[in-house]
């Protein structure tokens, strides 16, 4: 399917069309609610939906450009990693002496995405952050000779790299693997599947929590998370997974259900993981980069866990078992 220079596998095209239909419905409902009751303050909700439009449109353009301009997905996910890492390093306590270390961390982003761009670099893609970047960071920190806060500083940078660079780069790496693994959806199918389910899971857990949420799960970290929200969200995500997997992925029904449950549960933990960090350092939003949502880190929180997990499961069960790699 082609629109101008953008080309999509038909199933990806119709899934994106479905997402735009959902967004249009949301925009319509908000507009009607505003017309019905002008006194209601819907500024935040409207901003949030507007940002969704921009995010999904960007994502759709990048998925469609990947066949014409190969770097497109690496540039997009690399940029997302950069913004998220910058938010992370801004909100956590850091030492002035470690400024060169942060520069290395930022430079690790283009490195990681270059490795992500070819299957020939698969080993480097998986290990170079640990085998090359970590020792380099240690060496620079040793040259600085400041042992006060050494462990915390090293752990902080490593946490930031894992959470924002290593995890998100897995989404881009799908585009470098043999397309034969997914005859229907291609790399775009896998990536759209995991991102749509993870983000949808956030929304489903939120809505379900508003409807049935009573007993809190982890009140000390995130007071708004309830058992009702988690169970309802996982149920919705599992059903959604079983419905869209046949179009976007080669998974069997059993596989789709298992992945739906896994994405639902681990997505929840990714969300709470970022909440815990924010609570520790005492900020509400990582930045104002995505108006209505907060920062990039607030939006990709669940993906930090679901993306690498989904990648490894797919790599093992589809690519390796299928004899493609």
């Amino acid at each position: 399917m082609n629109i101008a220079w953008l080309s999509y596998p038909p199933t990806v095209f119709w899934t994106l069309a479905g997402l735009f239909a959902l967004l249009s419905a949301a925009t319509l409902i908000i507009t009607l609610m505003r017309l019905a009751d002008r006194s209601r303050d819907m500024h935040e909700l409207r901003q949030r939906v507007r940002t969704w439009w921009i995010m999904i449109a960007t994502f759709a353009v990048v998925l469609g450009s990947a066949s014409l301009w190969r770097p497109a997905p690496y540039v997009l996910f690399g940029f997302m990693s950069f913004i998220a890492l910058k938010e992370f390093l801004t909100m956590v306590p850091t030492r002035r002496v470690d400024r060169p270390v942060f520069m290395i961390a930022y430079l690790a982003i283009p490195m990681q995405y270059v490795w992500a761009s070819s299957h020939a670099y698969h080993g480097l893609f998986q290990m170079s952050l640990f085998v090359y970047v970590c020792p380099l960071i240690v060496i620079v920190m040793l040259i600085n000779q400041r042992t006060e806060g050494f462990v915390t500083a090293f752990g902080t940078v490593l946490c930031g790299l894992l959470m924002t660079v290593y995890s998100l780069s897995h989404l881009a790496h799908f585009f470098a693997l043999p397309a034969a693994a997914n005859p229907q959806g291609g790399a775009a199918g896998f990536v759209l599947y995991v991102i749509a389910l993870t983000q949808g899971n956030d929304v489903a857990q939120y809505v379900s929590g508003k409807c049935f949420g009573r007993r809190r799960i982890i009140p000390l970290v995130s007071p708004n998370k309830t058992w009702g929200g988690l169970i309802g969200g996982v149920a919705i995500t599992t059903i959604a997974s079983a419905l869209i997997a046949p179009y976007l992925t080669p998974f069997s029904t059993m596989g789709a259900i298992t992945l739906g449950v896994l994405i639902g549960i681990t997505g929840f933990f990714g969300d709470v993981f970022v909440s815990a960090i924010k609570r520790d350092v005492g900020v509400k939003d990582a930045s104002t980069f995505l108006p209505g949502h907060g920062g990039m880190l607030d939006r990709v929180d669940s993906l930090t866990i679901t993306a690498p997990l989904f990648f490894h499961l797919t790599y093992f069960f589809v690519y390796m078992q299928g004899g493609l790699v």
């Binding site: 950069f82 910058k86 938010e87 390093l89 801004t90 850091t94 002035r96 400024r99 942060f102 520069m103 930022y106 930045s287």
Partner: peptide, 18 residues
């Protein structure tokens, strides 16, 4: 606030922070 982290007095390389 925060600009002194990006380019403090006496340094030449701006490191990204919000």
């Amino acid at each position: 606030r925060g600009l002194e982290k990006i380019l403090p007095k006496g340094s030449w390389l701006p490191i990204p922070f919000f």
